[in-house]
Write a protein that binds this DNA or RNA. Structure first.
Length: 256
DNA sequence: ATGGTTGCTTAGCAA
């Protein structure tokens, strides 16, 4: 099973590019983030023609997550569903071929010390409790998405510059580590030890051609599935050319 | 130096 995650920064702005990428990359599952559209406006039919069914948790203008898959999606659960009154569409889960798949869009956090930053840290805690209460680390599960956290110094282009900045603070990395303590393996790191491999580059200041990026999009898997991972890659090519998302897709393949 | 780019929605916010 080939599982991909991609923050597309609006599915309507990125539709042709995403469909073209599906055609070339042929993943079995694509977790999408920042679709920025209500479910009724999602281009569901075009995905179907391309061979993918979709399940959606969208909202107007902001956020929005989805899972596209070539095989049936069952047991769909939307949101963290933890009793808080939270309208932000940031999580969707479904089971595909016996694997629980979660597509997550972790809050950006905006600025250290801001309300949005507190919300981000709290959201990561809520995500951990979600896993504890609904999921089993001994079962095959993928948690993929835009986590808006670079785990290590080698995951930012300049650790000195990024020190204390949003996406790389000690607090955010600790919250992500706590989430991963549920029992999640970083499939990309399982296959790559080198630094300087990024999944997001700012649109501004020629950040992409200069490779001034950060690795914040991840495909995490529980140990029984991670042991089956054959390779994991960041598709840097998909960030090139006209009208790209500011994120590149991350892909992991697991033995069946 | 607080810049710069993109998307949604239409001037200002979010990323």
């Amino acid at each position: 099973m080939k599982v991909a995650t991609w923050n597309v920064n609006s599915i309507r702005a990125r539709k042709e590019r995403v469909l073209g990428w599906l055609e070339r990359a042929q993943p079995d599952v694509l977790c999408l983030q920042e679709t920025k559209v209500e479910d009724a406006q999602f281009p569901r039919d075009e995905f179907r023609v391309a061979g993918y069914e979709v399940v959606l948790a969208g909202q107007k203008s902001y956020n929005g997550v989805a899972i596209a898959a070539r095989r049936p999606l069952t047991d769909v659960v939307r949101g963290l569903d933890d009793g808080t009154d939270d309208p932000q569409a940031r999580l969707i889960a479904a089971t595909i071929d016996g694997v629980r798949i979660l597509s997550a869009y972790v809050p950006n956090g905006q600025a250290v010390g801001s309300e949005k930053f507190s919300y981000k840290l709290a959201w990561l805690g809520r995500m951990r409790r979600y896993l504890d209460s609904r999921c089993d680390p001994q079962q095959p599960l993928v948690l993929a998405g835009d986590f808006n956290v670079a785990p290590e110094a080698i995951d930012v282009h300049d650790p000195r510059l990024w020190r204390g900045q949003v996406l790389f603070t000690v607090e955010e990395r600790a919250a992500l580590a706590q989430l991963r303590n549920f029992g999640l393996v970083d499939t990309y790191r399982r296959h790559h030890t080198e630094g300087g491999r990024f999944s997001w580059w700012d649109y501004r200041q020629l950040a992409f051609p200069k490779n001034l990026g950060v690795r914040i999009d991840h495909v995490f898997a529980t140990p029984p599935l991670a042991e089956q991972s054959l390779h994991a890659e960041i598709d840097r090519e998909a960030r090139k050319g006209e009208n790209p998302s500011d994120h590149a897709p991350v892909v992991a393949e697991f033995a069946d």
